[in-house]
Simulated assay, not measured.
Amino acid sequence: MVMNTWNALHDRISLTYDEAGTGDGPPLVLLHAYPQCREMWAPQLVALSGGPGGGRRVLAPDLFGFGGSPVPDGGWTVDTAADALADFLDGIGITVPVVLGGLSMGGYVALAFARHYPSQLAGLILADTKGGADTAEVKAGRNKSIELVRDQRAGAVIDQMIPRLLGATTHAKRPEVVTAVRQMGAAQSIDGVAAALVALRDRPDATPNLASINVPTLVIVGAEDVLTPPDVARELAAAIPGAKLEVVPAAGHLSNLEAPDEFNAIVQRFLTTV
């Protein structure tokens, strides 16, 4: 897979991204979790495009500070990330509404995009994420993680997260996924992880806007997700008019990596309705 780079010269920001597929279907844009990068979508990129030369264009950008995308001066927020995503789509020639999918942190940015750019959405996929803002307790944990990454690099943060980031079945039966997730997280930069923690900590409550989402919406959650568990996903789906909820068996918070075949089948079915 060849990494592409989009540059917005007017404000000196850039995003790196991978893509696959062509065709007439609405483009599918996938936003990754924290502290991963665009590479976490490798099991989806070609599969959801319909294969080489398939039926839709699928894009997976690196959010600010991850993979090859630098952190903007002054950091970022979920809202400025949504603005950059809108500029990115225009800059690479996508002028039709897209299906936007986000997992965990990517879901927070997707919800910000839905708030600010509803006319640019054809559909929405929210995986292992939630609408609410961080509680005071979670914010305090983010601050501790910022100190940890500054002291010990990103590897210390991902090692701390791994037990809860992946489901019990993955830990027991898919050690290669555990290794890949740990390596991807450890490869991220100190500045990127710290800036993301600030953006996550300070993101607004998206709940008040959920009832105004008026595009087909799919909510996905791993049955073993302990960070945003199925009950949280049910609340999210219930708050969005017409949203469909799907639970991925034997998967935790990174359901697309832990059970890629099941995840892809769920998304493919949803895409036929958009």
Rank of each mutant, 00 (worst) to 15 (best):
V2P: 14
R203G: 08
F66T: 00
L111F: 03
F263R: 02
G54H: 05
A237P: 07
L48N: 06
G141P: 01
P163T: 03
G102A: 05
F66R: 04
D159C: 02
D225S: 00
M3Y: 14
Q268S: 11
R38Q: 14
L210I: 07
P97Y: 10
P70Q: 08
G167A: 00
A42D: 14
S69R: 10
R234L: 13
E137F: 11
V46A: 14
A243E: 06
S49F: 09
R203P: 06
R203A: 11
I13M: 09
H253I: 06
L254W: 03
C37W: 05
A186S: 13
L166F: 03
G53Y: 10
C37Q: 12
S255F: 01
L236I: 08
A140R: 14
D205G: 13
G93L: 04
D87K: 13
C37T: 14
Q36C: 02
D128I: 03
R174A: 08
P208N: 14
G21Y: 02
L165T: 02
W41H: 12
V219P: 00
G222F: 00
N264W: 01
H32Q: 11
L218G: 01
A156P: 02
V247P: 01
F88Q: 05
K130A: 12
E39W: 13
V193Y: 02
I94K: 03
A154M: 11
M1L: 13
V274S: 06
R164K: 05
T207P: 07
L200Q: 09
L15D: 04
G51M: 07
G132C: 13
V46F: 01
D87V: 10
H116E: 10
P61F: 09
G123H: 06
G67V: 06
R150T: 14
A81L: 08
H10N: 15
L218D: 04
K244S: 11
A239L: 11
I125G: 02
V215T: 11
G123K: 08
P260K: 02
V138C: 11
Q152F: 09
G155C: 03
D73M: 15
G192Y: 03
F88W: 15
D79L: 14
L126K: 01
V221I: 06
N209Q: 15
A239K: 11
W6Y: 15
A42M: 09
G123L: 08
V226C: 05
N7D: 05
